[in-house]
Structures are given as structure tokens and as C-alpha cells.
Design a protein around this nucleic acid. Structure first.
Lengths: 209, 209
DNA sequence: ACCTGAACACCGTTCAAGT
DNA sequence: ACCTGAACACCGTTCAAGT
């Protein structure tokens, strides 16, 4: 039976979970589909086009059914948590998302909802847009690190040991004090902390106008 | 004359400026140095090791001589601006930095200074560490986008047009209102806005304790 | 319409052998 | 100590030709 675009996309997402972004090649995908190298290029013009479609697929429903009666900071926090969860739904999902640019429906729905929430809170179109950019950099940056840390050998122990070994008590007292708080073991709390920081800043902006 | 490690590194940074991260290959670097493919591997164990050294080189002096008498929000803002400038100093500098993990001296000095400033403001070691993570995700995320936007054809006009074409006035009223505020033309203001947002959040945290 | 087969123009990395 | 020459094991992409 012939392939469909959706079958190629679904296989690509499963292959991503299996092997990660680094090993996700058009040749391995073709092999997983049982076709020759060139075959996938009939369904997607390029690897980049496939990656865009994968990112878009991960974002399905990210902005759907946000409760309109809750206060705006809660709605925005919910949207940020949903974006994080969408990116976490696939291995290296955050890196896939970060590498795409094209305005697809689900990505647009996220931006539309986020900007709408902040304009509703009283921010200008400019401030709302730039604040959403800030929030999105945070969610994506955090989630990239989170997914990278989750793949570190032995729960990140060797990496922390390497960092500890590079520290000099005289030069790096603050980093030494911070060693207990390396994010890897507490991604949920770590994410919530930065999100709350941004919301505190936004509340100050919204109240000040 | 034989190559030194520093010569390889300097050539790699210049080649990065010339061709960008996508075209920066070990083969082109060897060719630019007038040696065979394998030669650079005597000086750097892998491409990744070279990229780490490049990131570290860009961060030279990033935390030096911060005025200790200025208020902590100004010191932290200054440090964030310096990190951005360091990443902007080379084409795709932010992407190079984002791809590295090893604790080298200049990167450590940045983290040490940033955490120190926030602990001095009264934050716990945990809060200071996580807040610096948030700030750093922001600076890096912003600068990656900024450098990508700067390389877009025709000042990003076609990309904005493509976005505009994907918008539906009924579905995307807020994105339409936001179209005038696409970051590309105003990176300085855009960066300052998000930075101020984070500082407002941090002031609230610092005052609240 | 959809895929094969084969090629093109590359990659990072390794390593025996040279100097 | 430092580099050459050559190979190994891959890449993304294209496209005439098949069905």
C-alpha cells in the first residue's frame, strides 16, 4: 500500500522518540517506512518541511478551551504549561520546535491566545507581543535544557561532578552554594519558579498602567 | 609553520563570521588553514570540543569589573546586556553558545557573578540559581532569534508577508494587531523590554522576602 | 500519482604512515 | 609532536526511469 503524508509524519514522530533528534535522518525514516531514500521527498519537500510539520503536530490543541473566566495570570500560566507539555510529548520536542519558523495553525493559535490574554490584561499590542516572546523564549529554553538533562548518563551525576570539579572555592563561592540546586532533578519546580517570576513582572506592568 | 590550538580557534571564529554555523565544517576549516582534514583533530578532539572553545572565547571578560556600588538590578541588567553583546560578537554566536555545556572559566564567571548579585539582593541560593537560569534562557533565546532575523532576506519582509498571509482576521485579531511589532527591526528595544519584565519580577521577589 | 535506483556533493572521524 | 593520505560510515537531495 502506498504511503500517505500522515503516515510519513507519524513514523517520523515515533522515530524521533526512538532515536532522538540527532539520529533522526531521512534515510532512517525511509528505512523505517520500508521505502527507498527518495520516497519521502514526494510527501515532504525537504527535511526542514518535515520538521515543521512535526512541530506543528506536537502543538495540537495547545490553545483549545482555555477557561475565559479565570484571571489572566492563571490563563497565561496554563497556556505556558500546555506549551511545555506539548514540547515534552516527544523526545527533543523543544529542539524540534525551536528549529521551525513557518506560521502553522497550532503555532498561530498559541500566539493568538497568549497575546489576547495580555491585551485583555491592559497591555498594548506591542507590549503584549514582546512579553509573549519573552515567555516563549523561557518555556522553550527551559524545556530544551530539561529534555537534554533527562538524557544525561546516570541522572546527570557525572555532569554535576564535572562542574563541581571545575569550581574553585575562592573564585566560585556562589556556584558552590548553587550546586545543590542544579535543575535536573526538579524540572517541575524549576519551571514553575521561572514562570512565576515572569508573571510577577507582568502583574507589575499590568497594574502600573 | 606548524599550527597552534589558538590559531585553529581564531580561524574557526573568523570562518563562523564568514559562512555561518550551518556551513562551518571541519573540512572547510582545514581548508581555510591550508591543512588536510584530519589535522585539526590533533588540536581539538572533536567538532564539539572546538565549538565549546569558540563559545568560551566569545565570553571573554563578560563578568569583569562590574561596578559593585550600583544597585543590584542595574548590575544584573548590565551583566545580561554583556552576555547578549558577547553572543552578538560572532555570527550565530548565540546558537554556538546554546549548543555547549562544559563548565569553562568565562561561562563560570558569568554564572558566579549573576548568582552572587541575586543572593546579595536577598534571594536564597536556590531562587538565585533558578532566576539566573530564567534570565539566561531569555538572553540566549532572544539573541538566537535576533541573529536569525538579521540574516533573513530583504530585512525579513518576505517572512512577515508570509505570516500576514497565514492570518485570518476572524481567527487572529490579536496577531494582526501584533504584526507591526514583529521584533526584527527593533532588537534593542525588544531585548530591553523582556529584560525589564524579568527585573520587575525579581524586584517583587526580593522585596517580598 | 507515487516510488525505485542510482547518483551527486557533501559530512565527522580515525589512523597508519610519514616528517 | 604534528600532519598527510586515505579510508569508513554516514548525510540531504535530485531525478530519470519505472509502475
Amino acid at each position: 500500500m502506498r504511503l500517505t503524508r500522515d503516515q510519513v509524519l507519524a513514523r517520523a514522530l515515533d522515530l524521533l522518540d526512538e532515536v532522538g533528534i540527532e539520529q533522526l535522518t531521512m534515510r532512517r525514516l525511509a528505512s523505517a517506512l520500508g521505502v527507498q531514500n527518495g520516497a519521502t521527498y514526494w510527501h515532504f519537500a525537504s527535511k526542514q518541511a518535515l520538521l515543521e510539520a512535526m512541530a506543528e503536530a506536537m502543538l495540537a490543541g495547545v490553545a483549545d478551551g482555555l477557561d475565559p473566566v479565570r484571571p489572566w495570570p492563571e490563563r497565561l500560566a496554563e497556556l505556558a504549561r500546555r506549551l511545555r507539555r506539548a514540547l515534552l510529548s516527544r523526545r527533543d520536542g523543544a529542539r524540534i520546535f525551536a528549529g521551525t519558523f513557518f506560521p502553522e495553525p497550532n503555532a498561530l493559535a498559541y500566539g493568538e491566545a497568549a497575546i489576547g490574554i495580555l491585551r485583555g490584561a491592559g497591555l498594548s499590542a506591542r507590549d503584549a507581543t514582546w512579553a509573549v516572546d519573552t515567555l516563549t523564549y523561557y518555556v522553550v529554553g527551559h524545556t530544551i535544557e530539561e529534555q537534554a538533562a533527562a538524557r544525561l548518563p546516570d541522572g546527570g551525576g557525572p555532569a554535576v561532578a564535572r562542574l563541581a570539579g571545575a569550581l574553585d572555592p575562592g573564585r566560585h563561592p556562589n556556584l558552590l552554594a548553587a550546586l545543590d540546586h542544579i535543575p535536573a532533578p526538579h524540572p517541575e519546580e524549576h519551571f514553575a519558579y521561572g514562570l512565576e517570576l515572569l508573571l510577577a513582572g507582568l502583574r507589575a506592568k499590568a497594574d502600573g498602567k
